[in-house]
């Protein structure tokens, strides 16, 4: 890989520092940056994110991050998207009347359909069931609890992309993985030991240069 450097993409996302702190806690020395040259030279990238898809896409475009991120991911290097950092990878989101996203993964973010007794946002600790083996889930039992907070959930047209799934009114893929790309709907940086383990696994995997686990699902476009 290009370097051991972990870049946390700085586009003013609310959980930027929490993500950086979790990475530090597991022994990485993350650099918070919005510089395309840093992204280009990164050994691993984490794209944080909370809030609205519209705002996220606006900020990514405003800071000229779309092209560097798309090129980085296309180069097949380690990438972790968190929450809105997952939605940004999809083709579109229902948020704000419909929002085009990066279109790196074939899928959409849809709103939880209101129904009696269903609180939206989906907020709190919920279980994630692993659907296959993967380096980032090593040592984390299937059915472990992670912290979620979101009103829109991902759907993917290629089921092979799903690495983990979670049930809340619907069963949705709460972790996506394709090649060296992983994205979680939950916030590992706020998910105590299992979340920190996921970051630790990601950092170790990114450094190891281990081969990508099969099946490696197709990426859109």
């Amino acid at each position: 890989m290009a370097s051991d450097r972990v870049i946390v993409v700085d586009y003013d996302a609310g959980n930027l520092r929490s993500v950086a702190r979790a990475l530090e806690h597991v022994g990485a020395a993350p650099v918070v940056s919005a510089d395309p040259a840093d992204i280009d030279a990164a050994g691993a990238i984490v794209l944080p994110g909370v809030g609205a898809a519209e705002d996220t896409m606006f900020k990514l475009r405003e800071r000229n991050l779309v092209e560097p991120l798309t090129e980085y991911i296309a180069s097949g290097r380690p990438f972790l998207g968190v929450c809105m950092g997952l939605h940004a990878l999809l083709e579109r989101s229902d948020e704000g009347g419909g929002q085009d996203c990066l279109g790196i993964l074939p899928g959409e973010a849809r709103r939880f359909i209101p129904q009696p007794g269903l609180k939206v946002p989906h907020m709190g600790w919920n279980t994630v069931e692993w659907l296959r083996e993967h380096p980032v889930t090593e040592g984390i039992p299937t059915g472990s609890y992670f912290y979620f907070v979101h009103s829109y959930y991902p759907t993917v047209s290629d089921p092979a992309l799903a690495l983990g799934e979670t049930a809340y009114a619907v069963t949705f893929p709460s972790v996506l993985a394709s090649g060296y790309l992983v994205a979680t709907q939950f916030h590992p940086e706020k998910s105590s030991r299992h979340g920190l383990r996921l970051y630790e696994n990601f950092v170790r995997w990114a450094r190891s240069g281990e081969p990508v686990p099969a099946p490696s699902a197709a990426v859109a476009r």
Binding site: G14, G51, A52, D55, P121, H150, S151
Partner: peptide, 8 residues
């Protein structure tokens, strides 16, 4: 809610 998201 508009600037930071309802979730926070």
């Amino acid at each position: 809610a508009y600037r930071f998201g309802s979730q926070c």
